[in-house]
Amino acid sequence: MSKILVTGATGNVGRHVVSQLAEAGLEVRAFARDPERAGLPVETVHGDLTAPETLEPALEDVESVFLLWPGFSTGNAGEVVATIAKHARRVVYLSARTSGGGSHYEEVEELIRRSGLGWTFLRPGGFAANTLGWAGQIRQGVVRWPYGPASRALIHEKDIAAVAVHVLTSGGHNGAAYVLSGPDELTQAEQVRVIGEVIGRAVHWEEQPLDEARERLMEAWGEATFVDSALEAWGSFVDHPERATGTVAKLLGRPALSFRQWAHDHAADFS
């Protein structure tokens, strides 16, 4: 039986892709920088997409690849896609819900289109897991952050993984680009309130001035272009909310997991 190679196998989404494929009894190979520490229930090989020479051995007997591109530029993506195309038949690429403008996600999509591989693109919007960045502030009872009225339909990482597994294990998805979201359109302030309700703690939103937010993000990320792009994107959701798509429910035949369910699943991370 041909194997499925999962890159990004130790990440929020990849770990669930691996476990769900394994539970379905499929042959899975996980691609990880440190296999011994990965703790995955499948064959795990050493690899790093920024070192393409590690990819070719991992592709032996592989038919399909779940691809998560690391970083925020295309880098050596062309070489990676070409290597995959030499060995595999199809790729499911975890892209992103973008508004155009030549992002690295779109550049990698174009490389895949030109590769000769069969492909499916998964384009989730905001990840619910990104709110884990507020965990320290939530423990203190106040989240100080910009754009409290910005509204998004955050998606549970388990749903992204479930869609990936569905696409990898069923037909009819070649050439499709699926825009994925959660079912709830919540402002950032409402997201904080829901987390507080789930963990049984009063948590309040405090609007942070943009210059202060930018300074903090520069300290954390160190890349001005990326910081400004992130702030601009968050601000855009105030007047143009990210809408729920319903795609998860259509593909999986069940409702997408709610943000409240995600908060229950991660309650310990906020306690």
Rank of each mutant, 00 (worst) to 15 (best):
A244V: 01
D239P: 07
D239Y: 00
S258V: 01
R260E: 15
R243Q: 15
E242L: 10
L251I: 04
G246K: 03
R254I: 01
S258E: 07
S229N: 15
T247W: 00
A233M: 10
P255Q: 13
T247R: 07
L252N: 00
S229Q: 11
A249E: 15
R260M: 07
E242H: 02
A249Q: 13
S258K: 06
V248W: 00
D228F: 08
A256P: 00
D228A: 11
S236C: 09
L252K: 00
T247V: 12
E232F: 09
T245H: 00
K250D: 03
L252Q: 08
P241N: 06
D228N: 14
A233F: 05
A230M: 14
R260Y: 03
L251E: 03
A256T: 01
R243M: 11
A249W: 03
D228K: 07
G235K: 09
H240N: 14
V227P: 05
A249N: 05
L252P: 01
S229W: 14
F259W: 05
S258W: 03
S229P: 09
L257M: 07
S236I: 07
G253W: 10
V238W: 07
D228T: 13
S258N: 06
H240D: 14
R260T: 10
R254T: 02
A233N: 08
R254D: 11
D228M: 08
G246N: 11
A256W: 02
R243C: 02
S229V: 07
S258A: 04
E242M: 10
P241R: 09
